[in-house]
Write a protein that binds this DNA or RNA. Structure first.
Lengths: 341, 341
DNA sequence: TGTTAGCACTCTTCCCAGTTGAGTGCTAAT
DNA sequence: ATTAGCACTCAACTGGGAAGAGTGCTAACA
């Protein structure tokens, strides 16, 4: 269904005004503010049409109109122009990323903060745990009597560690020799292969008790498994409170529940594509708890997995700004990844 | 100032009822509920006395009484009996800790969750970064052309890493030899000493370019410095929303602002003692934003530093339960630390 | 035929006054 | 010292206008 220019103009006006004020928009207000060359009565007729089409709705007879979710959807799909970051913002983003480059966690955190700050919504960045696929390096470090640490580095540069108990008699140099053998045998192998490797051979070569080798292998195994948890960073929860729709505590609770429970959030988010910004409006969301909020989401590639970044806010959202910002941020993340990994 | 038994009983009744209902407590209600053998009129007289002493206050003339902050303070200091964890809860706590033992971060997170769940307030656990003092082990791992990772292990078992750039010609075996020299020279030394060590000697021994050694040393330096950030884990923010005092969005904002900004929270918390539970009530708090909330806090020792654990909630708090729980949790943390480090 | 002015109508919001009810403080009796 | 009784206070609720924003409809107009 396509709208004529005037209807579009009116729909846009209603959306812009409503997003700004959170109040129903009247015909007079539209004519005045956007100084259209038509009368309020004409606007009223057009608005009645738009209401019939489902793009606008009236909270009650004597109120102005507000955009329906389909209205927002139409606007987003057919009319919206993304509002990209202004120069200052781009520079700020670059600066933030540069300052934290040495630590990936910091980069993520600061990008999240940036996104929340610029959009004034709540931002999230989800970093998939890069599948622990290939063994790069293992290091055993003795940490005092009877304790040691297994440090594992994967080819993707992920660092993992786990404490283990070892017989008290074992010294660092014993560990070092086990270490060397492990690295020789396993370097570059897939983890799956490590698990299948013939351990007898290993034990023979090391002349060590089954016990300690098993402990180490178990630790490695666990580390490889445990890598399943994605990292979720959320910023700007406070911004939610500024939205009048969340004056209602029940709504607020639902949202905070989602934000507090990482799995809920991950379930809620749609699969992102890696070159389009995905917008989900109100009832389009899977979760009942999220039927009153919208999500603007982009995906980014990281070591073959897909990461997600975006903002979450009320249906009455500045989609144009949010989409532009999320897109810019995604690009920035892509660049960091490309340059540094 | 000490109160006679009857006044104490009445103060306690007001506190218990008020904490439960969040409503002012009337004289009749007290007599009924706690079936005292005195009349409502007597209670009224006593309550008037308690008000003169500053322990109770009236929202308005025709309302019941609510405890003032001094009232809570008196109760906490002179009358309160801590309500410790019941068996089920203790077992749950033990189980939670055991399940996550291999990963200190997980332990902290789950202890925080437990604390929030049991008290129904918002919990925090602050883990001071153990001062990076002594060098335990360093490992250089080549991560593809021109890139490497410096992995540092301190004697306290903290693992840190940082990416560096290296000349493309450098291979893993070159790194390995640098590695060995570094470990030989530095093992067991304080970081401060590492910085002062005569580098010329190092370069001579390694026959390597100044460049790569400097890069590595710089990385180590940065790691040693950067360790200054405490880890803060907050759970159960959602619980705040159930407290009627935070229906008021402005109050809620103030609190969330504190909880969202780690430095704010750290400034707010008083220095904990390591064997007493510290209770801060309302206006006793340093920060203006926190004048309407109370904090129950305990300290624990970790590698010579002091960590903090506790809950934060409305002034109308179940101090007895909170103090008991926080204390138990502190003990549990102490035990984990003692047993495993 | 599309547009517009005019007007009656609707519905929320705000304000005001009156009512209710919980709870007090005081007084006088026990 | 304690208590019953009672007048008093004040928040919270209730209902009835009045105000105001905005609509839909009709009739006139270009």
């Amino acid at each position: 269904m396509t709208l004529d220019e005037r209807k579009k103009k009116i729909l846009e006006s209603v959306i812009k005004d409503y997003v700004e004020t959170a109040e129903p928009v009247g015909s007079r207000a539209i004519v005045k503010k956007h100084n259209l060359r038509i009368s309020a009565a004409t606007v009223r007729n057009e608005m009645a049409d738009l209401e019939d089409m489902g793009y606008l709705q009236q909270p009650h007879t004597s109120a102005g109109r507000i955009p329906s979710e389909s209205g927002f959807r139409y606007y987003v799909d057919c009319m919206m122009e993304r509002e990209n970051l202004v120069d200052d913002e781009v520079q700020l983003l670059q600066k933030i990323i540069k300052e934290n480059l040495q630590d990936w966690d910091e980069v993520i955190q600061s990008i999240g903060n940036f996104l929340a700050q610029v959009t004034r919504y709540t931002s999230f960045v989800i970093v998939p745990t890069v599948r622990v696929d290939e063994f790069k390096y293992v290091q055993l470090v003795r940490m005092g009597k009877g304790k040691a640490m297994v440090i594992l580095v994967t080819d993707t540069g992920v660092l993992m560690h786990r404490r283990i108990s070892i017989p008290e008699s074992v010294e660092q140099k014993d560990l070092q020799s086990i270490n060397e053998v492990f690295n020789r045998i396993f370097a570059g192998k897939k983890f799956a292969e490590v698990r299948k490797t013939d351990l007898q051979y290993l034990r023979d070569e090391l002349h060590k008790s089954k016990r300690i080798i098993d402990t180490i292998l178990e630790a490695i195994d666990r580390l490889a498994e445990s890598a399943g948890e994605d990292k979720v960073v959320i910023s700007g929860i406070l911004n939610m409170l500024n939205e009048p729709e969340f004056k209602n505590l029940d709504k607020l609770k639902k949202i905070l529940a989602i934000l507090e429970e990482e799995t809920l959030l991950k379930n809620l988010l749609p699969e992102p594509s890696c070159d389009e910004v995905e917008i989900t409006i109100g009832r389009e969301n899977r979760l009942d708890e999220a039927k009153e909020m919208s999500i603007v989401l982009a995906g980014y590639k990281i070591f073959g997995e897909v990461g997600r970044v975006g903002v979450i806010g009320p249906v009455r959202m500045e989609y144009w700004k949010a989409a532009g910002t999320v897109d810019s941020v995604r690009t920035a993340i892509d660049e960091v990844l490309k340059k540094h990994f």
